[in-house]
């Protein structure tokens, strides 16, 4: 498939995004160059899109993604893939705060560390972090799965509801109303199967599966002391 280059520089982001969208709708892949960490690049792209971003991007890249395959060569700013419903985003470096916030589906693959509150309020989909999962990641996640291969920071999975956070390595501290449970073999197989798509499978890993403690929020807790945890 032919790849077209689109230069960002100091141009209007609306104009750049319209060019990206027009290119992918005509069947072309896109290489977005001179990004200069600008915000809102590649927002709301359709399923046919395959877009690479040179260097680092600013806030909200790939937000509301609806099936596009995006790759960011270096770092991504805050809110990357926020609200995405389908598709795939690869971040080769560090991912800023609230990556995958409120996402509904699709996959975000972070090769470096994640910033704080990765997957905050996510409602579906998968986030894979090869490095360390940032402070309070998985905060209030409603559904979906976060997989971290390099440990996790403070307040991990704080107040999550029905999401899952899987961690290999040290967890600096667990968040409010969470617990580590022994995963079922078929669940481990499911996680390793997801990782195998990236060549990351390793059957010798010691997984820590974090789920809700179910003492707060939507669990009709009548235990007053539970609320003192907050």
């Amino acid at each position: 498939m032919k790849e077209v280059e689109i230069i960002v520089g100091r141009r209007s982001i609306r104009e750049v995004n319209e060019e990206i969208k027009a290119a992918v709708l005509s069947g072309q892949s896109v290489y977005v160059r001179e990004t200069l960490s600008r915000h809102n690049l590649g927002v709301g792209l359709p399923a046919s899109a395959k877009v690479r971003f040179e260097g680092s991007v600013g806030y909200y890249c790939g937000g509301l993604n609806n099936g596009a395959i995006l790759e960011i060569e270096r770092n991504a700013g805050w809110g990357t893939g926020e609200g995405m419903s389908d598709g795939h985003i690869t971040i080769n470096g560090y991912a800023g705060m609230a990556t995958g916030a409120s996402m509904l589906g699709g996959t975000i693959h972070i090769k470096g560390d994640s910033g704080p509150r990765c997957g905050v309020a996510m409602k579906g989909g998968t986030i894979i972090v090869e490095g360390k999962l940032g402070y309070q990641s998985g905060f209030m996640s409603h559904a979906g799965r976060i997989i971290a291969l390099g440990g996790a920071g403070v307040s991990c999975a704080d107040a999550l509801w029905a999401g899952e956070v899987w961690v290999v390595g040290a967890i600096e501290s667990l968040g409010v109303d969470t617990k580590i449970v022994e995963p079922q073999p078929e669940e481990v197989d499911s996680v390793e199967s997801q990782l195998s798509q990236y060549g990351l499978e390793d059957s010798s890993r010691e997984w820590q599966k974090i789920v809700s403690g179910e003492r707060l929020w939507y669990f009709e807790s009548r235990e007053a002391s539970a609320w003192l945890m907050i």
Binding site: R38, G96, Y135, G153
Partner: peptide, 22 residues
């Protein structure tokens, strides 16, 4: 506050440090 501002002064800087933690 924003990386894009840093890159206005240093467009060729390869990498930045994010002070994102608590």
């Amino acid at each position: 506050t924003e990386e894009q501002a840093v890159r206005c002064v240093l467009p060729d800087a390869l990498d930045v440090i994010n002070y994102d933690g608590p």
